[in-house]
Design a protein around this nucleic acid. Sequence first.
DNA 1: TTCTTTTGGTAAAACGCTTTCGGAATTTGG
DNA 2: CCAAATTCCGAAAGCGTTTTACCAAAAGAA
Lengths: 338, 338
Amino acid sequence: MTSTINDIAREAGVSIATVSKVINNKAHVSPDTRKKVLQVMEKLHYTPNVSAANLARRSSMNVLYADRFYKGLPYENPHMFDIVCGVSHELSRKGYRLSLLNLDSCGKKPEAAMEEVILSRVADGIIISSAFVTARMERLLLKYDFPQICIGEPAFDTILSWIDTNNTLSSNLAVEHLVSTGCRTLAFMGGRREDSIFMDRLRGFRSAMERRGLEVSEDYITYNPPDVEAIFRSASALLELPVPPDGIICTNSLMAVGAMRAIQAKGLDIPGQVSLIAFDDHPYSPMVSPQPTIIDVDLFSLGVHAGNLLLKKIRDPAMLVQTYTALPRLLLRGTTRL
Amino acid sequence: MTSTINDIAREAGVSIATVSKVINNKAHVSPDTRKKVLQVMEKLHYTPNVSAANLARRSSMNVLYADRFYKGLPYENPHMFDIVCGVSHELSRKGYRLSLLNLDSCGKKPEAAMEEVILSRVADGIIISSAFVTARMERLLLKYDFPQICIGEPAFDTILSWIDTNNTLSSNLAVEHLVSTGCRTLAFMGGRREDSIFMDRLRGFRSAMERRGLEVSEDYITYNPPDVEAIFRSASALLELPVPPDGIICTNSLMAVGAMRAIQAKGLDIPGQVSLIAFDDHPYSPMVSPQPTIIDVDLFSLGVHAGNLLLKKIRDPAMLVQTYTALPRLLLRGTTRL
DNA sequence: TTCTTTTGGTAAAACGCTTTCGGAATTTGG
DNA sequence: CCAAATTCCGAAAGCGTTTTACCAAAAGAA
């Protein structure tokens, strides 16, 4: 059927040990022999059997991305795929493969599924959504000293490695930009109180304001459900305040749309009378007019970074814990002044 | 270190052959022995080594999803991830794993990468984007009789298996809905002529119109670049025609936005004076007002179907070629009459 | 009873690699 | 020029499973 290392060895008149050395670019093979072996490999269309190599080498050249991959997920989390692409890109450049581990629909508890994965040696490391990183999960990963990177800072104190976006810095950047373009009264439109990402951004907002000696009244901070109409009302209320805001920070694009509609409904000019800045870019930005100024993060790069970090840990098990936060960037568009 | 099948056999006082039978749920093991072995496995936290099993069994319980996974991809193709999720979900339910094969950044030509993948036995089958299905690729897959499903109908006549959305039927559904809600003059806003998906939809549009005995003049068919301003002008031009359309079919959401702006700029009512229907739903639909009526496809299910079909082929190599087209669905929202 | 199946189990041979170890040949150093 | 080191290569021992071939004992069929 397909050729094996034995066929190559026989045909090239060498031992399989030598062929193995050629395959893995190891030393102690003369240029002539190497060339000969390579020719035969080429001729017989030889490709090493991955399972056999994995077994002998005690490694799979494989990494898992552990998360929930379910219906409509791009709707809930339209950005997650960007990270996956980044990881995959980096790994495949380095000769590794990325497999998806569906921690939801494999019929087992996440921790059980994880232990099985580790013991079965199906992967050399794992990239795991911090949504699945419980204390038990942490213990498991540490127990086996399994190379790992969490996507998102875990919700508890941990000594696992993680990477995340810098939400505090993002808020700071937003405030900085609004203030430097002349805004005096800032409002903040957040999501639900339970959502840590919003709360991080709110914390960042408060500290950024404080650092600049600007006062922040609770009246200018709103918490909104993911519903355009509710957001519209919430933004309208902000504009009714005795001193209405001249700069609004929206923690996502949906809020940006609701807020913009409210501003326009009041007949106010954007960015002439009210500036607006939103978090997270998305494919349909051009749909709104004027196009919103955005603070976001290059998630593809974040994925590349995660892959890179994990590979380092795999190659050097002694490597220490790492954390990394990606810097936000400002996409200057039409809803803030220059 | 971690326990092997030998440890289990010794501890349970049986041979490794018996343990193997227990692991794989095979016959010829007495209930008592089976129970005993299972207990020992549980006790020693035993999980079979995947590489060893793969090698012996000559299969990998792994499937590849071959496509381009690159920066900003969710922007170009925000729906692709939904398919991946569907495939992953179905496979993991059946005990298979899904790996991503980046046909772009692995440093080889797609065909070379594919041959390597097949020969290395790293996967039992492949799901491949038809963007990569060339004639050479087809020959390769057929030569090795490698289980495969194309995502999207290949651009040439092929005997490979594929699944796709039914663009013709989608157009038909759009026409049907518009006509049945009283529209008389329909316009069609397509993308670039090079893009097969648009052309399929256009073909479907023409035949649907013909079937109803409705005339379709070329004036009512536009080809647009992915740029809101251009789309806006194009839609405005449509509305300037001697007999302006009272129903517009937009082949994606961007066009819907451009068209809606043009209609509203003319002071016309949606859907009172002009109805509008667009292809493909997306996470930011609620951002536009009124929310567009949409024709789309459940891509997650399409992915599930693809995974299912591939698994069948893997388990029964004699299975014949299959094609499948997913039925579109109508999401009735605010831009068409009832 | 006697012959045939079925059941429960084992030993041993793959599966296709990597790696260690040792030996011969060659190069280097002093 | 000789000892020491280095290079090149092969034999053989794994790696941890699955599977085949075979055997004894039990069950069924006649």
